[in-house]
Amino acid sequence: MAVHAHPDDESSKGAATTARYASEGVEVLVVTCTGGERGDVLNPTFEVPEGHEFESIEGRRAVRRLEMAAAAEALGVQQHWLGFVDSGLPEGDPLPPLPDDAFARVPLEQAAAPLVEAVRRFRPHVITTYDPSGGYPHPDHVYCHTVSMEAWEAAGNPSRYVVEGGAEPWTPLKLYYNHGFSLKRLRAVHEAMEGQGLESPFGDWIESRTAREIPERQVTTLVPAADWFAARDAALIAHASQIDPAGFFFAVPRDVEADVWPWDEYELAATRVPVEEHEDDLFAGIRGTEVAR
């Protein structure tokens, strides 16, 4: 189960991994907390699908659902909506308050309840989500972490989130944080591109992160996923309102990426099974054991 804040996050964070596991017969469910209703159009070539509008909350939600369905098909995964409303990314100094209907303003037990139920119904052995920073300071990403941790702790407890007719408690075994762009990865790709005389998109980013001394989180798990980069890219492009096909995500030639960084990165945040120090599989310690049944 991969828990994400908005539609498109599942395609930019760990997408090749989910596509890989789905192709190998693993049941993969993407859970999307919000409908992405307040996301700006980030693709200059975007055209609103015929029969739709993109000016209202309802219209954006409908278009983002179309995009999400296409992305899930490209990855070969199942997908489930929690049904909350995008908080938007507040801007200004001081920051304005979040909208009243924002996901990040929903009380924790109310926000976590549908995720706990989803965990109990899907019964995942592994959950992926965001680290405490959210990966970047969007309120929905930060709250996605909070809600995911609540579900990780509560889903197996029969005395919590008791719902008449709800699914039986289920205890997942491992929880990971996605790591999309570690400094080590950025440098490896940056140096490879410069070595081939190509313009790297990461130079300023590396300098900025180094200057600000942003602490690097630990990467414990590198999942080989280069053979599924094409599926990831197709899922990204499916989010036409958000992803520019000529933009940042496609600035690195795929042969270069596959050669120098053919992995998706994760941090093992919690485990209920014994593990090795370094992994190449999210199911390490689970496969072939009684707990996998």
Rank of each mutant, 00 (worst) to 15 (best):
R60V: 03
R60Y: 01
R60A: 01
R61W: 10
R61Y: 08
V63K: 09
V63I: 09
V63A: 05
R64H: 12
R65G: 13
L66Q: 13
L66V: 12
E67G: 03
E67C: 04
A69M: 04
A69L: 08
A69Y: 03
A70R: 13
E73F: 02
A74F: 00
L75T: 13
G76A: 12
G76M: 09
V77F: 01
V77P: 03
Q78H: 07
Q78S: 12
Q78T: 13
Q79A: 15
Q79D: 15
H80K: 13
W81R: 10
L82E: 00
L82D: 01
L82K: 01
G83N: 07
F84Q: 02
V85L: 15
D86I: 13
S87I: 01
G88F: 03
L89P: 00
P90T: 08
P90R: 06
E91G: 05
E91L: 07
P94R: 13
L95W: 04
L95H: 05
L98W: 11
D100G: 04
D100K: 13
D101A: 06
D101S: 06
A104Q: 02
A104F: 00
V106H: 14
V106R: 13
P107W: 08
P107L: 10
P107I: 08
Q110W: 07
Q110N: 14
A111Y: 07
A111W: 04
A112K: 11
A112C: 04
A113K: 15
A113L: 15
P114D: 14
P114F: 10
L115I: 04
E117K: 00
E117N: 02
A118P: 01
A118N: 04
A118V: 11
V119C: 06
R120T: 01
R120I: 02
R121E: 15
R121Y: 03
R121F: 05
R121T: 09
F122L: 06
R123P: 03
H125C: 10
H125Q: 15
H125A: 15
I127T: 03
I127L: 07
T128Y: 08
Y130K: 13
D131Q: 14
P132N: 09
P132Q: 10
S133D: 13
S133I: 07
G135C: 12
H138I: 06
H138K: 05
H138Y: 08
H138A: 09
P139N: 02
P139L: 02
P139H: 03
P139Q: 01
P139I: 02
H141A: 11
